[in-house]
């Protein structure tokens, strides 16, 4: 658990970066600090491992005032991931990951063994261990950064805009990876970003901060989207928050209907209805339009995911029928937007 008690940070030039922050980060959760530049999110994060010391107030990690621990000792017990990873260019990937274990006195052999395990954990092939950071892509470097932070198995992980320098597709992959790791490792993570979508996607709780170092709202993402505390939060969360809040609504009550299918590659005679093309494994491959032409399908909705996925599947489908699949990607049926909206409406009542 990390606790901020009335923490204020004023810099020498007179700017107040953090202003009376009171906040508790629960153990085993991901808490995201989000806000525009100058809101004090990074400063708050850096006060946890004493990269910056507060002007007043107290930061506690597991009940202990961090100011009572000397910085190198404190930092070796807290994982630290930064933007663009900050890997040591002169060391191999393996030795980068082994940094903290070596600092805490492990033997080189044991530290490298641990580093190799971690590369596997973050989904990197073992042979990458002998390369140098410059030989990796941005996304791979960032994974190494995460592996390095996890090497000594610290209970707390600080992540300062770790994924903001990679392209959106890679970023999404890294976010998924982080969530998968967290499910496995159960760390207490503080994650700083300026991207509200990222915050809502990965945070168990999100702290929205406002320029001048004020905490505007501290709530689970669903609450942030449905009940923003004020106009600033509402504006920061964005225009389509109504739609995005559906990510946090489960899809129970959505009825899945059957749909006419044709096998992939079979001759397509005309028919008044849209028919779904499936392969031998019953995986959806697209649609046959009433005029007989084959068109690509929309997004797929996996049973059990949030209701946003169901609605999006229906809205993005050329036939208006959202395709539902099971966890293995096999066809389970279809839903319509009207059905999904009815479920949403009935939830409100």
């Amino acid at each position: 658990m990390i606790e901020f008690r009335d923490v204020t940070k004023r810099f020498d030039d007179g700017t107040t970066a953090v202003n009376g922050l009171d906040l508790v980060v629960e153990a085993g959760t991901i808490t995201v600090f989000v806000g525009p530049s100058g809101c004090g999110k990074t400063t708050s994060l850096r006060m946890v491992n004493r990269m910056i010391d507060p002007t007043s107030g107290t930061v506690l990690v597991d009940g202990e005032d961090v100011l009572g621990v000397d910085p190198p000792t404190l930092r070796r017990g807290i994982g630290y991931v930064i933007q663009q990873a900050g890997l040591f260019p002169h060391r191999t990937v393996l030795d980068n990951v082994a940094t903290v274990p070596l600092l805490t006195g492990w033997t080189r052999r044991k530290a490298r063994q641990r580093a190799a395990e971690l590369l596997e954990l973050v989904g990197l092939p073992a042979e990458l261990g002998h390369r140098y950071p410059v030989q990796l892509s941005g996304g791979q470097q960032q994974r190494v950064g995460v592996a390095r932070a996890l090497a000594a198995d610290p209970p707390v992980l600080l992540m300062d805009e770790p994924f903001s320098a990679v392209d959106p597709v890679v970023r999404e992959g890294l976010q998924d990876e982080l969530l998968r790791l967290q499910a496995e490792l159960d760390k207490t993570i503080v994650f700083v970003t300026h991207d509200i979508d990222e915050a809502v996607r990965i945070g168990d709780k999100v702290a929205v901060m406002r320029t001048g170092g004020f905490l505007a709202q501290y709530a689970p993402p669903a609450e942030l989207l449905t009940r923003p505390a004020d106009d600033f939060v509402a504006g920061f969360v964005g225009k389509d928050r109504g739609y995005r809040s559906l990510s946090f609504v489960d899809s129970s009550g959505v009825e899945v209907a059957e749909v006419a299918t044709v096998a992939e590659g079979s001759a397509s005679e005309s028919s008044p209805d849209w028919r779904l093309v499936v392969d031998a494994d019953k995986r959806p491959q697209g649609w046959v339009a009433p005029d007989g032409s084959v068109v690509p399908g929309g997004s797929l909705y996996e049973v059990g995911a949030s209701i946003r996925g169901a609605l999006d599947a229906a809205l993005s489908s050329p036939s208006g029928l959202g395709v539902v699949v099971d966890a293995g990607g096999h066809l389970a049926g279809v839903v319509t937007a009207r059905q999904v909206l009815d479920v949403i409406e009935s939830r409100r009542g």
């Binding site: 930092r75 930064i82 990873a85 900050g86 040591f88 260019p89 903290v100 600092l103 950064g145």
Partner: peptide
């Protein structure tokens, strides 16, 4: 690189 130095500090190097 400042990021490299920052990472070194943040990982607990004296």
């Amino acid at each position: 690189d400042r990021g490299v130095v920052d990472a070194a500090r943040g990982m607990g190097m004296t």
